[in-house]
Amino acid sequence: MAVCWVGKATTFIPVEAISRVTDAEVHVSVSRQKVSQAPVYDPDVVGDQSYYETLYGCYGYLPFWNPTYPVVPPRPTP
């Protein structure tokens, strides 16, 4: 999970949505609109599995604890 700020809202982004990282930026493979529609970060529910199920579902990914979670090979370092 990565923490992302869009406007004034803070949310998590599944690591699967991160497409590139530089020294100054983190690029994601989803639109700003999709990020803005994701559940807002709430420290009171961060430990609740249903929060992550909703979050991952919003982005179209399976939660990492799902038995069919895809194992993705590491990306090459540029």
Rank of each mutant, 00 (worst) to 15 (best):
Q37R: 09
H27I: 08
G57T: 07
I18G: 01
Y69S: 08
V45W: 02
V21N: 06
V3S: 11
Q49C: 08
Y69L: 03
Y51S: 03
I18C: 03
G7R: 11
G47E: 08
Y69T: 06
Q33H: 05
P74Q: 11
Q37F: 06
S36W: 05
I13K: 00
P67C: 07
D23G: 08
P70N: 04
S19V: 11
S19P: 01
V21G: 02
K34A: 13
E25W: 11
Y61I: 08
F64H: 08
P73I: 10
A17T: 09
L55Q: 03
R32T: 15
M1P: 01
P14R: 07
S31G: 13
A38R: 00
W5T: 15
Y56C: 11
V45Y: 05
V46D: 01
P70R: 02
E25I: 08
L62N: 09
P70F: 05
V40K: 06
T68C: 02
V30Y: 01
D44T: 10
R32E: 13
W5S: 14
P43H: 08
E16G: 03
G60F: 06
R75Q: 13
G57N: 10
A9V: 15
V72A: 04
W5M: 14
Q33S: 12
V71N: 01
A2G: 10
P67A: 09
P78K: 05
V72Y: 03
R32Q: 12
G7D: 11
A24T: 13
V40S: 07
S50W: 00
G47Y: 03
V28W: 00
P39K: 05
A2E: 14
I18K: 02
A17F: 05
V26Y: 03
R32P: 00
Y51G: 06
V45N: 06
D44Y: 02
D23M: 07
P78R: 07
P14M: 12
V3P: 01
T68E: 14
D23E: 15
